[in-house]
Design a protein around this nucleic acid. Sequence first.
DNA 1: CGTTCGGTTGAGCTTTGTCAAACCGCGTGG
DNA 2: CCACGCGGTTTGACAAAGCTCAACCGAACG
Lengths: 253, 253
Amino acid sequence: MGSCIIEKFSYYGDLTDDEKAILDKFEDSKEHYKAGETVFTKGEKIENLYIVFDGWGYISANLDTSLRSIFDVRLDADFIGIPEISFQNHLYDLHALTDLTLCPFPRKHLDDIFSKSTRLRDIFFLIISREKAIANERIISIGRRTAFEKVAHFIVEISLRYGMLGMEGHNSFNFPLKQEHIADLLGLSPVHVSRAMTNLKNNGYIQYNRSTMHIVDQDKLRNLAAFDPSFVLKPDISFDYSNDNVDKNQQHA
Amino acid sequence: MGSCIIEKFSYYGDLTDDEKAILDKFEDSKEHYKAGETVFTKGEKIENLYIVFDGWGYISANLDTSLRSIFDVRLDADFIGIPEISFQNHLYDLHALTDLTLCPFPRKHLDDIFSKSTRLRDIFFLIISREKAIANERIISIGRRTAFEKVAHFIVEISLRYGMLGMEGHNSFNFPLKQEHIADLLGLSPVHVSRAMTNLKNNGYIQYNRSTMHIVDQDKLRNLAAFDPSFVLKPDISFDYSNDNVDKNQQHA
DNA sequence: CGTTCGGTTGAGCTTTGTCAAACCGCGTGG
DNA sequence: CCACGCGGTTTGACAAAGCTCAACCGAACG
């Protein structure tokens, strides 16, 4: 009955009543974390998957005391824990960047989802595909783009992920990341992130202040970042595995 | 009846007769590619998943004519295409590095796997988890390690992936990658890879020639690379989602 | 033998990192 | 209301890591 899991799951596709009934077994609880708090750390036992209800989190690993790597940021309706689904213990840390509200998603109900609804299962695979595509783009960024391009690309990525839109992208959005986080996401030093961002600002690509980002010219920014739109999956899934429907939901022209 | 899919799937866990029966529906065909050939390219329609039967392949993207990024290398029993499972068209290219034999894995039979056997489905999730963990380690490497450490870490990774072993790691193995490929995997230039590798050789970490790699001292090399063993999943899966069996298959001490 | 392909080496250059100081907005307490 | 301090950003000077270009080497193969 209107659980937050159903609400957030709906972002990925309209749900039938049957599908809602399957999801409705999940407890409708929320967990709240203050900005800066740690949700879990490496090595802890995995209790749940989560869906982000509100706020920003980030997934990170610490190499030694000084070196940190951030794998990804978790926004509204993003899942947390799917890639760790067959581990018993967390591999990474999850921190709340802003105040963060999560909907726990108990693993023990996953059997139901997978056996009772091929469509819900497909949504799961959609999410997995999407996340792997994002990870691959990050690998390209970190490995082969300049600092300037890395930052530009990341801003475009967030503008697209924000609110699960299609391809248009938000032009103004909440952006609570500190430059230190961007640095750890992109494999840069914080001061170099600063240089890249002031550069983007001075050249008319973006405007920003402490907490909001405004993209002045999406096309110009995407062009600079050599942004490839094909990895962005539309939330409207309607694929099947039969290979008969060649023209359905094409990703490429 | 003894299809290569059953053979390779067995690497991930002993299969019951029921599970084998489900997999036995797959055609037992093999596709052969010569070293250097292209298996598929970005934008092509996705026909199959694959399992590697023999040889090495690599998954890459080209940014422009000069810049290439390699996401991963595909070895014996690795799957190809799982992260793209909800796309209609390929996002990346697959090339044969050596002569390469693949077992096609038609998507239309996936429904059977997921609905008829929770265990086969769990093996799928094991694979997905493992691949995401490998991708995350690559992100750490590219973003936060020195060239020397990147190369060292990559060699350790391959020694562990080779042949789906547990934690021991092979000390001598076939290594057909050119330095150019290592460069594209790790975000380096080919000449810098050369420098790093001769350095590793001169300091007694490794020996190698055109096609084989020998790790002189695993511990020393892992130590240098700050290698974190926790991301390596044992092929013996026996997890469940009930959270009752706290001590089973622990990843951390 | 000569050619080709990949690997190695050196020199100089570019990008990015490091360190330290200055700055800026904002909240707090006097 | 102002001074202060704090956290985060910016700037500058310098150092280091890695890149590019070009020459050279050496094994494999015709």
